[in-house]
C-alpha cells in the first residue's frame, strides 16, 4: 500500500519515541489522600462514574458492576460526585 520501509537503524540509535502504556509516571495510586469505595448494594450500573473518571481507573465487570483500579486511582473524587445514587464513598487513606 505504501512505499515506505520502517527499517531498523544501523548505528547506535536512540530516538525520542514511546508507546502508550499504563504507569508512565509510576503507580499514581500513591498520590491519593482519599479512596473511592463502591457500595455494590446501591450501585445501579449507570456507568456515569466510569464515563467521568479522568484516569480510566473505574473498570467494568462483565455485568457492568464497576470497581476501582487502586494502583492508579489518584483519588480526585469525581466518581463520588457524579454518582446519582451516592453509591461511592470517599474514605481517607491510611
Amino acid at each position: 500500500m505504501s512505499n515506505v520501509n520502517v527499517e531498523e537503524p544501523k548505528s547506535l540509535f536512540i530516538a525520542p519515541v514511546s508507546k502508550p502504556a499504563p504507569g508512565s509516571v509510576g503507580k499514581t495510586g500513591t498520590w491519593r489522600h482519599e479512596k473511592p469505595v463502591i457500595n455494590e448494594e446501591k450501585c445501579v450500573k449507570c456507568l456515569l462514574c466510569w464515563l467521568y473518571c479522568p484516569e480510566d481507573t473505574i473498570l467494568r465487570r462483565e455485568d457492568d458492576m464497576v470497581y476501582v483500579d487502586y494502583d492508579y486511582c489518584k483519588g480526585c473524587g469525581i466518581c463520588a460526585k457524579v454518582c446519582p445514587v451516592n453509591a461511592i464513598d470517599m474514605v481517607p487513606e491510611g
Partner: peptide, 27 residues
C-alpha cells in the same frame, strides 16, 4: 455507554493532576 468495550481509553498512571479535564477529554 454500555456499547463501549471494556478497554483502556486512556492510560492510567499518567502525569495529569487529579480531576484533570484533559484526560477526561482524551478518553
Amino acid at each position: 455507554l454500555r456499547d463501549f468495550p471494556r478497554t483502556h481509553f486512556n492510560m492510567p498512571g499518567n502525569a495529569a493532576c487529579p480531576g484533570c479535564p484533559e484526560t477526561m477529554g482524551l478518553r
